[in-house]
């Protein structure tokens, strides 16, 4: 009896039943190997790093210089998650943060520079912004029963004056997705979704910044305008 493959219009479902021993065993071995490889690929997870190329926002600049404090935890931030039967997943976000915030502040302020300490005097800037990542989540199409890889990022921003005093803090939740049909592999799609989430965080920051009460009070004090 020959090895048979029954095929529906879209899917092969293979099984082997071999009577012709020598060839049959080879075919069965090949099928087993293929099944194992497919299972391993299906369970492999992904390890991605967010690219470091970001656009510069095209917005009206705040006429103040600002300092940026990026702590070690942010610069080394990697989200790791093990999913049952779906392997280990890793999204490395830390290495993208310097260029992401440099471009963001480049577009939003007349000047910016990195500072090494947040609670210190910085006479050449009007304030210091200190971002941190509080939470990262992701979903694969298999989990969400959709066609999308999705990534959520929750940032917390703290604003300090140029004497090191904390003026206030606020959170920002960003979201990115990537359609699986536009990508050849899991890694590429997850990376694209993470990148989209970072871009969304930048876009949201440009819109949200001037609406935060602590920022409004700081701008009013520094620019002499009513809060």
């Amino acid at each position: 009896m020959p090895f048979a493959i029954n095929q529906s219009p879209t899917v092969f479902r293979g099984f082997a039943n071999c009577a012709a021993r020598r060839n049959g065993v080879k075919v069965a071995q090949a099928s087993l190997l293929l099944s194992i490889v497919t299972l391993l690929v299906g369970c492999a997870g992904a390890k991605v790093a967010v690219p470091t190329q970001f656009p510069v926002p095209l917005v009206e600049k705040v006429p103040l210089p600002i300092g940026l404090y990026l702590d070690e935890a942010l610069l080394a931030y990697t989200h790791r998650e093990s999913l049952e039967k779906r392997g280990d997943w890793e999204i490395e976000l830390g290495s993208a943060q310097p260029s992401m915030f440099a471009n963001l502040l480049d577009g939003m302020f007349v000047g910016h520079r990195l500072v090494k300490q947040v609670a210190a005097r910085h006479r050449d800037v009007a304030g210091v912004l200190a971002p941190s990542i509080e939470e990262v989540q992701f979903a694969t199409p298999e989990q969400s029963r959709s066609d999308y890889y999705e990534v959520w990022l929750r940032y917390r921003f703290k604003l300090h004056d140029n004497q090191g005093a904390e003026l206030g803090d606020w959170e920002l939740t960003a979201y990115g997705k990537a359609h699986k049909q536009n990508h050849a592999g899991t890694g590429s799609a997850l990376q694209d979704a993470a990148m989209a989430a970072c871009r969304d965080a930048m876009a949201f920051f440009t819109q949200q910044f001037a609406t935060v009460p602590a920022v409004q009070a700081w701008l009013a004090k520094e620019l002499g305008a009513p809060a």
Partner: peptide
């Protein structure tokens, strides 16, 4: 942010060979 983990709703993986 999504609530709960979607992994708990996930079905076991199937071995499929796309045509």
């Amino acid at each position: 942010m999504r609530k709960g983990h979607p992994a708990s709703r996930a079905a076991p993986p199937q071995v499929e060979f796309r045509l």
